[in-house]
């Protein structure tokens, strides 16, 4: 899906790299690291929103995949109602037609917001806003979903519900997910693979394939606990060395 080779990103100071990583199609990959480790920069490079200082980014079959981006805040346009917010990508790409309206309505239903089409963002809770944001990211049938700490401002119960909904969206839509988070437990719970970045400039400290026992409640298993502990220790060690 996505290959980042010898990627370095500098602003006034180096912030990321060198990074060598391949993101496989239909995988769920989380990126964790301390503040300033370049997690968000990694995501913006992968999306093409910013360009690298050196190195190369290539896509499967040399075709840039359709992407959806979910930001830390919901980035809804407050002057548009929910359905118009979801329709925004179609409008900007000039594909606004009855089919896109139907798709938008379907996605709103899928994220549990049926009946909220005409509500304005200020009438929604934080969790509902994030659901609209996810619907907007998915409405154009993207292959790659990028999420930048999307649930960090939500309460525990809402966050857990959204995590499960995200997993369901990933599984049923055969998409690739790149997920940036501060939370080790969230990364292990959601992902097939967790990449740990060092403090800036971020380089890959650990690239861990998550072993999941799907028969049991994963979070109760010893595999879950040991993998969380392993990643936490890496981050703690990194913190001490700063």
């Amino acid at each position: 899906m996505l290959i980042l080779k010898d990627i370095i990103k500098n602003y006034e100071v180096p912030v990321l790299g060198p990074i060598d990583v391949e993101i496989k199609s239909k995988s769920f990959v989380s990126i964790i690291g301390a503040s300033g480790s370049g997690k968000s920069t990694f995501l913006r490079l992968a999306s093409g929103l910013i360009s690298q200082s050196s190195g190369s980014i290539s896509y499967k079959n040399n075709i840039k995949p359709k992407m959806g981006f979910v930001f830390q805040d919901s980035t809804l346009l407050p002057w548009r109602n929910v359905i118009d917010n979801v329709l925004l990508p179609s409008e900007l790409t000039k594909q606004n037609n009855s089919e896109s309206i139907e798709k938008s309505i379907n996605w709103l239903e899928r994220v549990g917001l049926k009946g909220k089409e005409n509500s304005f963002p200020n009438e929604l809770s934080g969790g509902q806003k994030m659901r609209v944001s996810i619907a907007r990211a998915m409405v154009q049938g993207g292959d790659l979903l990028l999420l930048d700490e999307p649930f960090s401002a939500l309460d525990e119960v809402t966050r857990r519900k959204l995590e499960d909904d995200l997993l369901e969206i990933w599984e049923t839509n055969n998409i690739t997910v790149l997920f940036v988070t501060h939370s080790v437990t969230q990364a292990v719970y959601l992902s097939q693979r967790v990449i740990v970045l060092s403090s800036g400039p971020g380089i890959i400290l650990e690239d861990l394939a998550i072993e999941k026992n799907l028969k049991d409640d994963f979070e109760e298993t010893s595999e879950f606990i040991s993998q969380v502990r392993h990643l936490t220790n890496i981050l703690k060690k990194e913190g001490r060395e700063l």
């Binding site: 929103l49 981006f69 930001f71 830390q72 980035t75 346009l77 925004l88």
Partner: peptide, 11 residues
């Protein structure tokens, strides 16, 4: 972020 959202969709 809103500017980035618009950039993502080639506005």
């Amino acid at each position: 972020n809103l500017h980035e959202l618009f950039s993502l969709y080639g506005a």
